[in-house]
Design a protein around this nucleic acid. Structure first.
Lengths: 190, 190
DNA sequence: ATTACTTTTAGTACCAAGTCATAAAAGTTT
DNA sequence: AAACTTTTATGACTTGGTACTAAAAGTAAT
C-alpha cells in the first residue's frame, strides 16, 4: 500500500483516534507506516492531545454522568404552589443532566417525571399511584429553559380513580400535556 | 489531628479512591500525612490499581457500552437485547432510590423512564423523540423486583411517527404497558 | 531491656507514553 | 542546484507509576 500524502494521513489519523481513542502513537506509527515523530507532529498540528489526556477526558465525562444520575434521582422539579386536591405548580430548570448528551433536547422522561410527581403531590393522601396516563410532548425543550408544570385535580372516575390534568409550559408556550389517572387509598370528599 | 491506625487509614483510602478515582498517590500521601510508599503499600494490600489503570477502566466502561449513537447515560435500565427498528429488551432492578420513601412501591416515572428510553434506543436513528404516549401501570412494583421491559417497533403512522409498544413484566406478570409515538429524523424503510 | 515483629520511610533502577528542542536527512518544487 | 516542505533521529526531561532492597521507627512479648 502506497504511503499517503500528509493531508490524507492527517485526515485518517483524526478519524482513527476519534474512533479508537485508546491507541498509542507507536501503534499509530505502525498503522500509517511512518515514524513516531511524524505522528506526534501530526497530533500537534491537529491539536489532538496525548493518549492519557484522551483517556482522562473520556473517563471524566462518564464520571460526571454517573454522579449526576444518582443525585438527580429524587428531585423532579420544585413545588412552588400547592393546594391539596385542587391544584399545584412546580418548576424545573433543564440542565445538562436532563438532555441527550449529543443534542440539547430534554429527554421525555424528565418532563414526565415532573408532571407525574406533581400529580402525586397534589393528591391529599398518604399514597397516590399512577394507574394510567395519556400524555403528549408538544414541543422540544432545550437546555437552559425553565419548565413550569401546572396540575389541576379534575373529577373522580366511576372506578374511584382521581383524574389530574398536568400542563407544562416554557414562557407561556405549552410543551407538554398529560392526564393522569391516580389511585388513592382514601376517597376524595368535597 | 492524630495519625490514624493502618486499618482505619486503609478503610478511608479505599473510600476516597472510590469517590475520587482521579487522585494521585502523592495527593493521597498529603491527605493522610504518610509517605508515598505507605500509600503504595496500602494500594497493594487492598489491590487497588494505579491511577492510570483506574482512569482507563472508567473510560472503557463508557466506550464499550455505547449503543450506536445513543450513549449509555441516556438509557434507564440495562439493555440486554437490541435489534434496531425491530425489538429490544431492558432490565431494571428496583432499588431504594426508585421507591416512595415510606411504602416500598416504585414511583411510576421510573417505569416510564425505562420504557421511554428503551423506545428511544430501539429506533435506528441519531435522534428519536417521544411525541405522544399512552401508558398504563397495571400493578405496583416493589423494591427488589426486577422489571423486564420489552419493546416492539410496530408501524408508522400517516404523520411519519413510528409506534413502539413497550410492555414491562416482573416474573412474567405484566406491570406496565405503553404505546409510544416517536419522531425520528430519517424515514423507516422496510 | 532486649528481642521479635509490624509498620513506615527511603532510595535506586526501571517503564510507558509522552513533551520539547535541535538537527539532519529525504523528498519536492522552482 | 537552491529553496522549501516533510519526515526521521536523537537526547534531555516529565509524570506517575512498579519492583526491589534496606533501613528506621513503633509496638508487643519474653
Amino acid at each position: 500500500m502506497m504511503r499517503k500524502t500528509k493531508a490524507e494521513r492527517q485526515r485518517l489519523l483524526k478519524e482513527t483516534i476519534e474512533y479508537t481513542p485508546f491507541i498509542t502513537d507507536e501503534e499509530l506509527a505502525k498503522i500509517f507506516e511512518v515514524s513516531i515523530q511524524t505522528i506526534r507532529l501530526d497530533r500537534m498540528e491537529l491539536k489532538i492531545p496525548e493518549l492519557r489526556e484522551r483517556i482522562k477526558s473520556v473517563a471524566k465525562l462518564q464520571w460526571n454522568e454517573q454522579v449526576r444520575s444518582l443525585a438527580v434521582e429524587d428531585i423532579v422539579g420544585e413545588v412552588v404552589d400547592l393546594e391539596l386536591d385542587k391544584k399545584a405548580i412546580s418548576i424545573m430548570d433543564i440542565g445538562r443532566e436532563h438532555v441527550f448528551s449529543q443534542k440539547n433536547i430534554a429527554r421525555g422522561h424528565h418532563l414526565f417525571a415532573q408532571a407525574n410527581s406533581l400529580a402525586v403531590a397534589v393528591i391529599n393522601d398518604e399514597l397516590a399511584l399512577t394507574a394510567k396516563s395519556n400524555i403528549r410532548f408538544i414541543r422540544q425543550v432545550k437546555q437552559g429553559e425553565r419548565v413550569v408544570a401546572k396540575a389541576i385535580v379534575k373529577k373522580q372516575t366511576d372506578r374511584g380513580l382521581t383524574i389530574v390534568q398536568v400542563d407544562s409550559f416554557v414562557n407561556n408556550e405549552q410543551v407538554f400535556t398529560g392526564e393522569f389517572h391516580m389511585y388513592r387509598s382514601r376517597e376524595l370528599r368535597d
